[in-house]
Nucleic acid binder design. Structure first.
Ligand SMILES: NC(=O)c1ccc[n+]([C@@H]2O[C@H](COP(=O)([O-])OP(=O)(O)OC[C@H]3O[C@@H](n4cnc5c(N)ncnc54)[C@H](O)[C@@H]3O)[C@@H](O)[C@H]2O)c1
Ligand SMILES: NC(=O)c1ccc[n+]([C@@H]2O[C@H](COP(=O)([O-])OP(=O)(O)OC[C@H]3O[C@@H](n4cnc5c(N)ncnc54)[C@H](O)[C@@H]3O)[C@@H](O)[C@H]2O)c1
Lengths: 213, 213
DNA sequence: TTTTTGTTGTGAAACTTTACACATGTCCAC
DNA sequence: GTGGACATGTGTAAAGTTTCACAACAAAAA
């Protein structure tokens, strides 16, 4: 299913709604109200309803939203019908954390391969994901039609890894190194830095502290 | 230094500017142009100039911005003068990744303690950070005046950890578990989920792919 | 000197995102 | 059945964020 111009923020929240809904899905509870979803994500109920309006989902006036239906609909919108394949480059702390967290979580995204240079990791399987030598990257990416790469190598290596990924035909990159990367416009690039998050918390914690004094 | 109502997004970018500037700081290069900073973060030069305007920094019309000065000014604004102390709860893959990445990076934020339940980790030091048993959390937090907590325990334990942190007087929490937490309004809460990032990349990669076909 | 080039700084417009306010609908209690 | 309680859905306003457009200026080139 395709919806024209879904806002960036809405896409992000749809993923979060699904995560939260999967967490509360059970035999007993089949429906959920907008204010319940809102509370879980610390946003307003109006925001939730607006997002659901954008994806054309209607709830039951008395019971709220059907959890299963909503999970399925979100899937129809944000997942690719044919599925997408993912690889992690750099099987250190962060790479392993990603793989073990991801395991079994999504059916339309498959974690196909990891790459490293450490001989102790190569040709072993971590949480169901085989690890290959970095030299095999182009070959494995192309063979398996992997379209998304996650970069968790030491930051100095990040640019060359990004280049290799792009040349192998990747369509999206999730970069966890602090190194600025340059990729062509047709490759979607997302970056995240824990220290930035921490500094944000530090800044607003200090601000709150003054405000609530 | 305090600036009234600095936008959320600007605070985030200031942290990123500093990260990027520290990365290019060297003897040879003392100044930087807005378009250079912009390119590193994949934003526009105007955005950079606007942010610097908000913090009241003026560049040199011909040479650009003094890198050292700018790093210092950003510090004066986003760091707390007296410093803030941080603890990590849950020393698994993610907790270790955080600590090793953070090591030596910031002078105004100190990583003081880690907590776990695994006897093999307790009373050992990881990258300079001592690990204590979770039972000691209230005591250690209060004694050391730790004001920020990072949660990287298995998600089932997250709510009780958050509660313990709040009761011990923490002012900000960075939660990496998918479990929704409830904290009082005076505690600043930030959450992050790798799968949400991945799904965002997947969504826009698929979209790009159609657009650039 | 004068012109050209390339930068910063910023008012105002445009765009994006969120919240308000309330019409509408459903069920339950009475 | 009638009114009250409590949801959803949504037009519109407000708030937040980014971009446009250009004045102001400094240095180098002509
Ligand atoms: N963005 C963030 O929030 C964040 C957080 C923590 C770490 N980091 C960064 O992420 C990266 C990984 O962190 P980590 O703690 O997992 O480090 P790590 O040292 O545990 O893991 C790095 C892995 O990459 C492998 N590697 C090295 N060179 C390689 C190459 N050329 N090709 C493939 N694999 C290679 C190493 O063998 C190792 O297994 C580092 O750059 C670190 O600075 C970022
Ligand atoms: N948000 C994200 O992007 C993201 C990514 C990866 C993992 N995760 C989540 O983060 C958490 C940690 O992931 P991980 O890969 O590091 O897992 P892990 O199993 O490697 O680490 C968890 C650690 O917590 C410790 N622990 C268990 N119970 C505890 C308690 N009561 N008090 C203190 N410590 C305790 C364990 O001994 C272990 O060392 C999990 O909840 C995981 O689902 C989130």
């Amino acid at each position: 299913m395709f919806i024209k111009n879904l806002p960036h923020k809405t896409v992000e929240r749809l993923s979060q709604y699904r995560r939260a809904l999967l967490l509360i899905l059970s035999k007993e509870k089949t429906h959920v109200f907008s204010h319940e979803i809102a509370q879980m994500l610390h946003i307003t109920p109006v925001q939730v309803r607006r997002d659901l309006m954008l994806i054309g989902y209607s709830g039951n006036l008395r019971k709220g939203y059907d959890i299963k239906e909503l999970i399925d609909l979100i899937g129809k919108i944000i997942d690719s019908e044919r599925g997408q394949r993912v690889a992690v480059v750099g099987l250190g702390n962060l790479g392993k954390a990603f793989i073990s967290y991801f395991k079994g979580k999504r059916s339309k995204l498959s974690m196909i391969a990891a790459f490293d240079v450490n001989p102790e990791k190569i040709n072993r399987v971590f949480d169901g994901v085989p690890c290959y030598h970095i030299n095999q990257l182009p070959e494995i990416i192309k063979q398996n039609n992997i379209s998304i790469g996650i970069i968790t190598v030491p930051s100095e290596q990040a640019p060359e890894i990004a280049e290799a990924l792009v040349l192998s035909g990747i369509k999206g990159i999730l970069n966890y190194t602090p190194k600025p990367l340059n990729v062509p416009a047709y490759v979607y690039l997302e970056e995240y830095d824990m220290i930035t998050s921490l500094e944000k918390v530090a800044f607003f914690a200090k601000k709150n502290d003054e405000r609530f004094k």
